[in-house]
């Protein structure tokens, strides 16, 4: 950590030294630029997850059995080496850690900036800052809350009386078939796309990936990623509402499982 340069008289610092100095490399996280690095890296990881998740979900359009098989394949990952679902759980823990760090760094950096900033009573006239960059501290929490709902709804089945474990097609069509839920998904995914638009571009800056010749591509990439994720993710509530994804309340997977169970008894 830098020595406080007490020999230049200054106004009092807005940020004090950390109470506990963590060992290297954790100490990097105690600095703002270090936190921005962590935010960028975890953002990249989360973004990777979101892209893969969105692409995987496109199996919905193949039909209930195909998406079911896709889900089972995820659980089967790495089974030749380690027990079933272990790799999936490892990835889940990784994502949870990334998510936690992303939120913590955002929270503490926001606190730091709020301490450093003073309001202009006459107002600011933004020139470069766009809607996305200025709403990161809003879109972030919206995504967080949405994620909780999303897990509770489609993973844990808390809010869905017809929830069938292991039948994404059924669960999605049941959940998103409700108009309020569909609207909630649409709003949240718009927020997600906006967050990704600034986050992707910002990540390059925070991680120091910058080469003037290619810099203009970063905006395209950010816009492209945000757009693809927006279109892909919005397609689900829209197509459920349009009736394209619909199992008429009957869970094929459930029937299949009952069928398998019955066969097992018979044998």
């Amino acid at each position: 950590m830098a020595q406080t340069v007490s020999r230049v008289s200054t106004p009092p610092p807005v940020r004090s030294e950390p109470r506990v100095r963590l060992p290297w490399p954790l100490s990097i996280y105690q600095t703002a630029v270090g936190k921005k690095w962590v935010m960028g890296l975890t953002g990249a990881a989360l973004l990777g997850f979101i892209v893969v998740h969105m692409i995987g979900n496109l199996h919905l359009y193949e039909g209930p059995l195909e998406i079911h098989e896709y889900a089972e394949t995820l659980r089967d990952l790495g089974t030749k080496i380690i027990p079933r679902t272990w790799l999936l759980w490892a990835m889940r823990f990784g994502l949870i850690a990334a998510f936690g760090l992303h939120i913590h760094s955002a929270y503490s950096l926001s606190r730091m900036s709020m301490a450093a900033d003073q309001r202009y009573p006459g107002g600011r006239n933004y020139i470069a800052a766009n809607f996305a960059s200025r709403t990161m501290r809003w879109t972030g929490p919206i995504i967080g809350l949405y994620l909780f709902y999303h897990l509770a709804d489609l993973t844990w089945g808390w809010f869905n009386p017809d929830f069938v474990r292991g039948d994404p097609y059924h669960n999605v069509s049941e959940s998103l078939g409700s108009i309020p839920v569909a609207i909630l998904y649409i709003v949240a995914n718009v927020a997600l796309a906006v967050h990704i638009f600034h986050g992707t571009w910002s990540m390059f800056q925070s991680l120091g990936v910058n080469s003037p010749r290619y810099n203009h591509l970063r905006r395209y990439l950010a816009g492209g990623l945000a757009g693809i994720i927006l279109v892909g993710n919005l397609s689900f509530p829209i197509f459920v509402q349009a009736g394209v994804i619909d199992d008429n309340g009957r869970s094929i997977v459930e029937e299949l499982q009952q069928h398998e169970a019955a066969e097992g008894e018979e044998n």
Binding site: P13, S113, S133, S206
Partner: peptide
């Protein structure tokens, strides 16, 4: 110790009377 944390708005570059680009921020990071 004295200032806030960059969120890459790019307002600084627009305000700079000497047109200093924010690329320098990335390189410093």
């Amino acid at each position: 110790e004295f200032f806030g944390s960059c969120t890459n708005h790019g307002e600084c570059e627009e305000a700079c009377p000497k047109d200093i680009p924010i690329d320098f921020i990335a390189w410093t990071n």
